[in-house]
Every structure is written in structure tokens, then in C-alpha cells.
Design a protein around this nucleic acid. Structure first.
Length: 717
DNA sequence: AGCACGCCGACT
DNA sequence: GTCGGCGTGCTC
């Protein structure tokens, strides 16, 4: 890790510096104009000090992403503190009309951002209509955070606020929060001792320093306790801690670990499952400083933890770290910003390693935190690979559609404990098979699985990518194909027949098992839903290699490795006889990284490739999508940074009618295009600002449809 | 987004 | 004259 006064004290990879500068210069220019004495239409009595409130109007016109000055009437002076929710009149109807004055315009919700003595605005100020609640929910730190997140993602402040500030429940606000407990003592390093730099990281956090680390976690069940200890170290320094994990299950485990370490009352769990009222209750406890430590899913990334001492993210490669709502901030990126702005320590951990994490290390912004090679080797299971084409010789293995090696590993493992079988998620990448005899459709060049991309009828090999024309079944001569999705249930049935004396359990999207007992059983699971085995699995079979690696995405390899590592980390270490069999081409890079248990090395090599190709995160990208003429319009109007490269636009696949639409897809039947914009990393803020400005101009003039902007588009490739 | 103002042609 | 088309610009 690095420390605040250490060598790696650098700039974060991306900042809203550019926008901040622009705003600053606008403010300076305005400051030269004589400031008017604040006056209202009716000359109503104003607050004696700081009579002007700078208000962020929520849900106003999207492009009016700025603060508005309102007068603070004397009777609202006490309640109208920075951060409170207010209602204000906003709209053309509020203006003076001829001789008389009329109050028109709608009442809009907003937040007081600050109170100032004078306004830059020359005209008469409208008065704040109402203070909705005296609770200051948008404090200065949270406001600054939302502002910089909006800037980075070319989104509006109001959109970010929607993610960051939960809706109000008056009844909950009326309840008092519990009294804050004194800081706990510094925690023992515990299993952090397995990492050479672990205890030092913990010490630095406990001392009040701000070390930053990218942590490659050892396989096994210790990570929730390790995250809890890191959080406890921050608390012991008198500061707060925030831990963001991908899903509710992981959050519950860290929550339990925090409870075991700190008792009750020093931390809260913040997840969507709580329901709006309980969530607001806990959020308020954090906002009021009654609780200093938070663990939660992505919405918790904005949690207004007081005097933040540590931010931590677990498994940042999991796609649920990206918010579903515009402008789609990613918890890793938001917490990088918070670590810098709020001067907190930073811990990014997982079994895998994303290229973005590798980039943080590569730029020297964070230091690697990993165990010694021999510690890793002992803790990890033995990994064996088997090509998908391997013929099974045993009849039983063939019946279960398992290669011999996988079948043997399962049979052997079942003598010692539960065996995990990871299968592709239904609909993830449908495998094609002969409609008549069910023989899988294979590529004529390399025997890889054929896939139908884009639904345009063309068949491509999932391995070598070559197109196959005029397919016919090698077995029976059939010419019609069907999608053969072998889901968890079918696999479970087949395995049940192959191992009739062993119970078979399944865990998948709709029915997730948390844990399984330490007894022989076959546990079939889709990626991400793997139950924890109490004594570790004796073996695991990873059967979805072709599906994961065949996915046409820049991250396919990284994502396959991440899912394999997550499953394999639940298996006993090799010293306890743990074995993993992965059905995938052994020459492929992610497969080799799994065999060597070297996620960080894999990420570094991926990063080097991306650098060569100019792909993110070595460059910064944004996408513009919409009807072709609107995309062209916006690109023509935008004053892009000089070095910005425009790739495309290219047509997007048309959304088929009736098909469930994923967010970001064009409306059914519409022909949309997408352009990608690329700049070097330091210019990301300038790119976002240019796009946002161009979009705002379009919205003001109301020419054409608004286009969709997305910074860090997820599906490049 | 709304809403008002303003500068044009056709109507009681 | 003046009613109302919608193009343009502002909203503290």
C-alpha cells in the first residue's frame, strides 16, 4: 500500500478538474460585476445573516444543472440550513408581469447547498416557499461527491442525487438515532498476517493514515473478516469506514463479521432488500454520525459516512457494481474519488483482478497487497484442465455429458465432501445443436461450438470466430438447428443419474442456497450463486468454459477467470486435497492464469494489451447512441478535446419486437447508431464536459431527439 | 420542460 | 385594429 506522505501520493486517474476550472472561471467573471443587494418581489423581511440560499432544483429541466439563488425569509432562517430539502417556485411564471407581480410557476423540490450573503443575480430573488424538513441530508461532502460524479459521467447532478439521497419518510426522520458509541480498540491482524504487507496496512489505517491497496485475496472464507478488520481499524482511528460489495449475500457476510468483531451499534448494513423505510432509518443514522461504519451494495457507495477513514470495494469485476440508473456510476470509480477528496484509505479486493485494479497499481496510485507465492499455492486447490472435445470413455460419464477427467474428479471428491458443479446460466450463450439428433453444432475448422450472433442467421465459431455457411449435422445430416441450453436443472438431473447414491442440490438465480453442509453432495450452481460449503468443497467442476470465453466482449477472458476463481476459492486448498477441473482450452490465457492462480499477472497482461490497442482503462471512452441524424448532429456540435478520436458511428443491432429489452437497447424496430469517442486518460473530464454541453444545447433548442451518452460504456468489443 | 414575449398574417 | 401562429429565450 501507499501512504499519504509516501511516494505514490498522486492524482487519481480521473478528476472533474476541467469542469471545476470552468465553473471557477465563470464564478470569477461574475464576481467582477457589481453584486446586487438581495431583494425580493414583495420586500418581505429576510434572514438577518446570509439571506441568500443557493438551491439545487431537483427534477427541473435536465439541462439546468446548476444552482439558483433564493431569498431566505426571516421565519425560515433557522430551518433553512445547508443540506435541507426545500420547495421553491421555479419557472417563467414567477417573473414580474407588467405592473403587477404574479406567483406562477411550479413548486419544485430542491436542496439548499449553501447560505451566502449576496447573490450574483441582478434581478429580484424569489423566496424559498417551504423548508420540507430541517434534516440536512445533502451535506457539503455529499454535494461535492455528487457534483464530481455527475461531471465524470456526463450526467446531471439531479440524476446522481437520486442515487445518493434516499426519499424522505417524515415518520422515520422524527425518530431519534441511537447515541454514537466510542471508537473500538485497534483490531488484531488475524488472517491479515497471511499477507506480508497485511498487518502494516491495518496499522496504517488504525494510525489515521491513508494507505491505498489493491488486494488479491487468498482463496477461502476469510475475506469477510478481513474486510471487517480493515473497517474496524478505521473506526479505531476515530474515523468512519465504508465497504461496498456486489450483492446482498456478500453484504450479509461482511455484516456478520463486523458484528462479531465490534458487537452491535457501531455499523449498519445498507441494501435494497431492507425496504425504503428501514433503509432511510439506517441512512439517517449514518448521516447524523450516530453510526460510523457501513457495509452495503452499490447504492451504499454514496453513504454519507462522517470523516471517512477507509473505503473498500470487494470484487469490482462484478457487473452489479455499476449502477443501473443514469449516469451509471461504478462503485470502484466513485470510491476512488471519495478516497481522494475525503482523504481516506482505499482497499480494492477480490479473488480476481480487474484491468482497472491493475491500472491503479501500474500508475502507482495504489500498491499491491498479495500473499507470497507459496502461501497462494498451498491455499489454492489443484487445477486441472480438460478440452471440451475430450471423449468420455466411461458410459456413466458420457450419460452425464462430462469428460472423463471431470467425472473422475467428482467421483473422487464425493468420497470426502461436497462437489461444486458450475454451469452456464440459462440464456447466457445458447449452444446450438442439431434439431433432429441433438448433436452439438461444431465448427468445421476447429470443432469449437457454433453460435448465432445478432440473430442475423450467420453462424460463427465461438472459438476461432470463422463463419460457417450451409451447416449440416455431421452425425445425421440434419440441416436445422436448435438452441441447446443445458441449464442447472438438466445438469442436476443428469448428474443425479450418474451418482445415484448422492444428494444433488441446485443453486441459481431464482433459488440461491447460502451454504451447504460438509457432507458428500453434488451442488449444481450458476456463476455467482455458488453456496459456501462449511468445510470447503472437496472438488469443483467448471463446465461453462466455452460459454464464458466465447462471449464476444473485451472482458470475456477476465470475466471467465473471475467466475472460475470465485468458484474455485470455495474449494479446499491443495494441502487438504481440493481439486478443480475446468473444461476449457488449456492454452488460453485465462485458463493458464487459473492454473497458476495468478489473477494479478493476468490483469497486468490484459492491461498491456489494452494499452497497445488504446482500449480502456488505458484510454477513456464514451459512447453516443441514438437515431443516426441525432448522433451525427451531436458529434458535429460538440467541441470535443483536440485529441478526441471518433470511432464510427456504426449501426446498432435492431431490438427484435417482443424480446425483453435491456437498458440501453434502442426501442424495438428503430435503427440506431452508436459512436465511440476515445481520449487519453487525462482528458476524460474534458470529453464528458464537451458531450454534456452539446447535449444541453440540443435540449435547450429542442432540435431532434436527445441522444444517449455513456461514459465507460460496458459493452465494447 | 413550461411559459411568456414578439413579430408575422387573417379575421370579428 | 387584434387574435393567435409558433420561433426564441429565460427561469433565481
Amino acid at each position: 500500500m501507499s501512504s499519504e506522505n509516501g511516494r505514490s501520493q498522486g492524482k487519481p486517474p480521473e478528476q472533474g478538474e476541467q469542469l471545476a476550472l470552468i465553473r471557477e472561471s465563470v464564478r470569477e467573471a461574475k464576481a467582477k460585476a457589481p453584486k446586487a443587494k438581495p431583494r425580493t418581489w414583495r420586500n418581505a423581511p429576510l434572514a438577518k445573516t446570509l439571506p441568500v440560499a443557493r438551491v439545487l432544483v431537483d427534477k427541473g429541466p435536465v439541462h439546468l444543472d446548476r444552482l439558483w439563488d433564493y431569498a431566505v425569509p426571516e421565519e425560515l432562517d433557522a430551518d433553512a440550513r445547508p443540506g435541507v430539502r426545500v420547495r421553491v417556485r421555479f419557472g417563467a411564471g414567477t417573473r414580474n408581469v407588467r405592473g403587477g407581480r404574479r406567483e406562477g410557476g411550479g413548486l419544485l423540490d430542491g436542496y439548499i447547498v449553501e447560505r451566502v450573503a449576496e447573490s450574483d443575480y441582478q434581478g429580484p430573488l424569489a423566496a424559498i416557499a417551504q423548508v420540507l424538513s430541517p434534516e440536512p441530508v445533502l451535506g457539503p461532502a455529499l454535494y461535492d461527491l455528487c457534483r464530481s460524479v455527475a461531471d465524470r459521467y456526463a450526467g446531471s447532478l439531479a440524476d446522481v442525487l437520486q442515487l445518493a439521497v434516499p426519499p424522505r419518510h417524515a415518520r422515520i426522520e422524527a425518530e431519534p438515532s441511537p447515541a454514537p458509541l466510542p471508537p473500538p480498540g485497534a483490531p488484531e491482524p488475524g488472517s491479515w498476517s497471511r499477507y506480508p504487507a497485511g498487518p502494516a496496512f491495518l496499522d496504517a489505517v488504525a494510525r489515521g493514515d491513508t494507505p491505498r491497496a489493491v488486494w488479491t485475496a487468498l482463496p477461502g472464507p476469510h475475506w469477510p473478516q478481513e474486510l471487517a478488520r480493515a473497517a474496524a481499524a478505521a473506526l479505531s482511528s476515530g474515523r468512519g469506514a465504508l465497504v461496498v460489495v456486489p450483492d446482498g449475500r456478500a453484504a450479509a457476510r461482511v455484516d456478520a463479521a463486523l458484528g462479531a468483531l465490534l458487537g452491535e451499534g457501531r455499523h449498519v448494513l445498507l441494501t435494497a432488500e431492507l425496504g425504503p423505510e428501514e433503509r432511510y432509518r439506517r441512512w439517517l443514522a449514518v448521516s447524523r454520525g450516530a453510526v460510523r461504519a457501513v457495509v452495503g451494495t452499490r447504492a451504499a457507495m454514496f453513504a454519507p459516512v462522517r470523516d471517512l477513514g477507509l473505503v473498500a470495494v470487494w470484487d469490482d469485476g462484478d457487473s452489479s457494481h455499476s449502477a443501473q440508473n443514469a449516469p451509471h456510476p461504478h462503485s470502484r470509480e466513485v470510491l476512488v474519488q471519495r478516497a481522494v477528496h475525503e482523504k481516506a484509505a482505499f482497499l480494492l479486493g477480490g479473488f480476481g483482478c480487474t484491468v482497472e485494479a491493475a491500472q491503479l497499481v501500474n500508475t502507482g496510485w495504489a500498491l499491491p497487497l498479495a500473499a507470497a507465492r507459496e502461501t497462494v499455492r498451498a491455499a489454492a486447490p489443484v487445477i486441472r484442465t480438460v478440452g471440451d472435445g475430450d471423449e468420455a470413455r466411461d458410459a456413466a460419464a458420457r450419460a452425464a455429458r462430462l469428460p472423463s477427467l471431470a467425472w473422475q474428479a467428482a467421483r473422487e471428491g464425493l468420497k470426502h465432501g461436497p462437489v461444486l458443479v458450475q454451469v452456464p446460466r440459462r440464456g447466457y450463450a445458447p449452444r446450438l445443436a442439431c434439431e433432429r439428433c441433438r448433436e452439438p453444432a461444431r465448427c468445421g475448422h476447429c470443432a469449437g461450438p457454433l453460435e448465432a450472433r445478432d440473430g442475423d442467421g450467420a453462424l460463427h465459431c465461438g472459438w476461432c470466430g470463422q463463419e460457417t455457411r450451409g451447416w449440416h449435422c455431421a452425425e445425421c445430416g440434419g440441416v436445422r438447428l436448435r438452441a441447446q441450453i443445458v441449464g442447472a436443472r438438466r445438469t442436476a438431473e443428469e448428474l443425479g443419474r450418474a451418482f445415484p447414491s448422492v444428494p444433488v442440490r441446485t443453486s441459481g438465480r431464482d433459488h440461491i442456497l447460502d451454504t451447504v453442509p460438509d457432507r458428500p453432495a453434488i451442488v449444481v450452481s450458476t456463476p455467482g450463486a455458488e453456496p459456501v460449503a462449511e468445510g470447503g468443497y472437496a472438488a469443483a467442476l467448471l463446465l461453462d468454459g466455452w460459454a464464458l470465453l466465447g462471449f464476444p466482449d473485451l472482458r470475456a477472458g477476465e470475466e471467465a477467470l473471475r467466475r472460475w476463481l470465485s468458484a474455485a476459492a470455495l474449494v479446499r486448498g491443495q494441502t487438504e486435497g481440493g481439486v478443480v477441473v475446468v473444461v476449457a482450452e488449456p492454452t488460453l490465457r485465462p485458463v493458464q492464469a487459473l492454473v497458476r492462480w495468478d489473477p494479478a499477472g493476468h490483469a497486468m497482461r490484459e492491461l498491456a494489451d489494452r494499452a497497445e490497442l488504446g482500449f480502456p482503462p488505458v484510454s477513456r471512452m464514451a459512447s453516443v447512441s441514438g437515431p443516426p441524424e441525432d448522433v451525427a448532429d451531436l458529434l458535429a456540435a460538440a467541441e470535443l478535446p483536440e485529441d478526441a478520436e471518433v470511432l464510427g458511428p456504426v449501426p446498432l443491432p435492431v431490438t427484435a419486437a417482443g424480446r425483453p429489452r435491456r437498458p440501453g437497447d434502442p426501442p424495438p424496430g428503430e435503427r440506431w447508431e452508436r459512436a465511440l469517442l476515445r481520449v487519453r486518460p487525462g482528458r476524460g473530464a474534458a470529453l464528458a464536459a464537451a458531450l454534456k454541453t452539446a447535449q444541453a444545447i440540443r435540449l435547450t433548442r429542442r432540435d431532434g431527439e436527445p441522444v444517449r451518452l455513456r461514459v465507460d460504456p460496458p459493452d465494447i468489443g
